[in-house]
Design a binder for these strands. Structure first.
Lengths: 185, 185
DNA sequence: ACCCTACCTTCCACCACTGACAGGTTGCCT
DNA sequence: AGGCAACCTGTCAGTGGTGGAAGGTAGGGT
């Protein structure tokens, strides 16, 4: 029950949110961060275990079960759920986003035009691959499983966004490559 | 002329890239980070001044002029430009992107359905505003100014991407809001 | 002459995040 | 019985990024 200014720290809320569905260990959670959340909010082992300990210490999580090999399962407390809801409704301050790809586009002038075109084609190829992977994933998932809870709805939304984004990226990079005059500088 | 492992640090390359166009001071550069680069790669004063000093110390930048009030103008050295090109061509490792908005969507199950719908409508409204702002900005900029250099091409590409992304976000959030069943849970 | 604003830089404490190191246990397969 | 892969948890030094405090200077307007 430690008090203190809670700043934006989305990992914290991601953890509480995931545990809301069902209790899990740090090990379990890492699988989520390495798969479905990898492109949305990547996190490392160190971060997850550290944060779980902090959250338990702060009374936002509790250990609900201890298994073999020191396994500890966590679940959110009422205080944890309250903090999650507070964060969800506090849509005013979003974390600043950073796009290394777009930054590179901004700096393309440092390369020859041929190299710049190559870079845009690389993005195009990658986007097409991502798109294919996500389409396959979407068909592979059994969206009607009972234990998915609200992710049946919201997980699908995120996937749809990611899919549209990949399409956008593919089309844009194709367009952008054509914007570069053919003569090399 | 300090040696050492150069890890991914995009701010460093953003600075060299900007100085490639023309020499500038930390103060000048901050204006760029507060305007055109704000949505691509935000940075604070502290970061910019600290990094400029480090880069000069490492021999990637040099002070080309000292003005009033301690103003120092920097320009990239050959080593700096080489490092920039190296980074540009090293498209293998992109920094992991984080989207707080998408994370929130993932966690919408923590709210009532009415609240979730409200959140998506908020995104929709914001995207529409962003779109309007960028359209206005695009018409306001004089893309034919001579001193813009390659940004005449590449800056426009980034703006186009941002515009399409805002459209995507607007349309997606409208669609997503409709996916939530009307009955409140 | 005065003041105020914009100009311009620097330092620091703190938090988020990374990558690597470290170490122990269970269950299954042969 | 032996071995090995998967399971499972932690710690630590170092870096990137944040927010804010601090402080000084030039120029323009009244």
């Amino acid at each position: 029950m430690v008090e203190g200014r809670v700043l934006r720290m989305s990992l914290r809320h991601a953890l509480i949110g995931l545990l809301r569905e069902s209790p899990a260990s740090g090990y379990d959670l890492m699988h989520v961060f390495n798969s479905s959340l990898a492109k949305v909010w990547p996190a490392t082992k160190s971060q997850v275990y550290t944060e779980l300990a902090k959250l338990a210490d702060a009374g936002l999580l509790v250990v609900t079960a201890e298994g073999p090999r020191g396994r500890k399962e966590y679940a959110p407390t009422e205080a944890g759920l309250a903090e999650l809801r507070r964060w969800m409704l506090d849509a005013g301050n979003e974390a600043p986003t950073r796009s290394e790809s777009l930054l590179r586009v901004f700096m393309l002038g440092a390369l020859t035009r041929d190299q710049a075109r190559d870079y845009l084609h690389l993005i195009q190829r990658r986007s097409a691959e991502d798109l294919a992977a996500m389409t396959a994933f979407g068909e592979h998932v059994d969206w009607d499983r009972e234990d998915m809870g609200d992710l049946r709805i919201y997980g699908r939304m995120v996937l749809e966004f990611a899919t549209r984004l990949a399409e956008l990226s593919r089309d844009w990079s194709e367009w952008a490559a054509q914007q570069i005059p053919p003569t090399d500088s």
